[in-house]
Design a binder for these strands. Structure first.
Length: 228
DNA sequence: GCGACAG
DNA sequence: ATCTTGTCGC
């Protein structure tokens, strides 16, 4: 079931070693522009909900209008995950179902936002980068928890941020989307810079810590899962 | 060797 | 990720 916008097909690897091979090969395709991208009218958020004690899961792709934060379109896909959760290899667990959910959208996504990381990853190729490369679309990640790198606590006000880095290498930002609330961790995935990813993250999260596209994808995937 | 470890 | 309601607090 190759998605209509999938540029690079996905195969589930047989083991961790094969997954890391694929990761290393695809990573070479990542492009991170220094210039701002064309401001998108919509952003498509992605997330997956899992059933307890089984491999059943539901993915949701939710396209949100940036200016209004309204939902424009929803695509979902139920299925069975075929790769275990391994830190650093999350993409191999989630990508098949995410691609299926994206397939259900009529309008091709402009910019993708994932629950997780882009290049802020042990091998600089997290879920957001992986999906961006497969679809050849701009993508970035917004994670709720830290993974790698260190950062200074950002200012307490909404919109303030600090660099997430490993040594001299800037991997992302800890971004305050709500005043006085724990920051989210933003990283570029593919074909987008950190400044754009940060700006979109803040614009898309007005009432809640998590930006609307991934927040709605979380809510909808969870609802569809329990209704199945 | 011992933890830590996106979702 | 997931099991789970109300409740305390800003």
């Amino acid at each position: 079931m190759t998605g209509k916008w999938t540029v690079v097909p996905h195969r589930t690897p047989a083991d961790v070693a094969e997954a890391e091979q694929i990761q290393a090969r695809l990573r070479e395709r990542v492009v991170l522009p220094a210039e701002p991208i064309e401001p998108p009218v919509t952003v498509t958020g992605l997330d997956i909900s899992y059933a307890v004690g089984s491999e059943r899961a539901v993915a949701a792709a939710v396209t949100i209008e940036v200016s209004s934060r309204d939902i424009l379109e929803v695509g979902t896909a139920a299925g069975v995950v075929s790769f275990p959760y391994v830190p650093g290899l999350l993409a191999f667990r989630e990508i098949p179902l995410l691609l299926a959910a994206l397939d259900r959208l009529d309008r091709p996504p402009e910019v993708l936002v994932c629950d997780g990381f882009g290049i802020a990853h042990p091998r600089r190729f997290g879920l957001a980068s992986h999906l961006g490369v497969l679809l050849d679309r701009p993508s970035f990640g917004v994670a709720k928890n830290e993974f790698i790198g260190t950062y200074a606590e950002p200012g307490t006000r909404r919109g303030e941020w600090s660099e997430l880095r490993e040594g001299d290498e800037v991997l992302g930002r800890a971004v305050r989307t709500r005043t006085g609330v724990k920051p989210v961790y933003v990283s570029a995935g593919h074909r987008i810079g950190l400044a754009d990813a940060t700006g979109l993250t803040v614009r898309l999260s007005t009432r809640f810590r998590v930006p609307e596209p991934t927040r709605q994808a979380d809510i909808i995937s969870r609802r569809v899962l329990r209704e199945s």
